[in-house]
Amino acid sequence: MNNFRQKIKEYFPSLLFLIFSIFFWEWYVKSGYVSDYLIPAPSAIGLSFLEHISILPDHIFTTMLEALVGLFFAVVIGVLIAVLIAGIPFIRRVLYPIIVVSQNIPILALAPLLAVWFGFGLAPKVIIVVLIGFFPIVVNTTDGLMNADKDMVSLVRGLGANRWQVFRLVLFPSAVPAFFSGLRIASAYAVIGAVIAEWMGASSGLGLFLIRSQRSFQTDQIFMAIVVIAMLSISLFLSIQVLSNVAMPWRKTLVDLGEK
């Protein structure tokens, strides 16, 4: 609880500035300096939210489903490949350079292609999120596995540990922090990845909602959708932060000690 109060204190200036900016924005638009066709006032965005409150949950559900299912597969496939790369030198030599280089492929540019291949259902969106999330997870987890403390590996090997035990007792726990760095990056792009994939054609989702709003020049709706997307992205990011604290209780202690 103490911690919570401390956090509020820490972020109070930012919060104040944010509130001030929103009021300034409201005043600026209301004074007619800028047409509300281009930039709607915060109050208009709020009203638009209330207006659509009955249809939004469906769109949110679709987009979040795509993002979460995509992240799930990105984690499963990413960790599996990281283990293969770290564990088998031959696979490392073949795959690792390719994976590092292929990080440069603009994955969102694949969205039209995926729409052609897989149609307008969930699949192409999930695949986009998987592709976006997969690389940071593989690269970070592989690093974590391969940079495990050599002395710890020696210690358990000296006790007669087999390969699996070395993985389970040393390599996996060592890779957890790096894995979470990868997952954080993946999660930051998961929601927006799903939204953009929806632009290629969808029957539901926040991306579809955005495109429709744009076609009818409803700027307030566009802004409202952007705020909703941002909120979802932030919640996902924070959930993963919480997850990582739960998974690494020893680290939390470290940080707390450092803050005192």
Partner: peptide
């Protein structure tokens, strides 16, 4: 021909932080 025959305490304490 085999590890795990002795109990070995290395110079660095190598405790597992987790």
């Amino acid at each position: 021909s085999g590890l795990g025959r002795v109990a070995f305490m290395p110079q660095r304490d190598t405790l597992f932080p987790w």
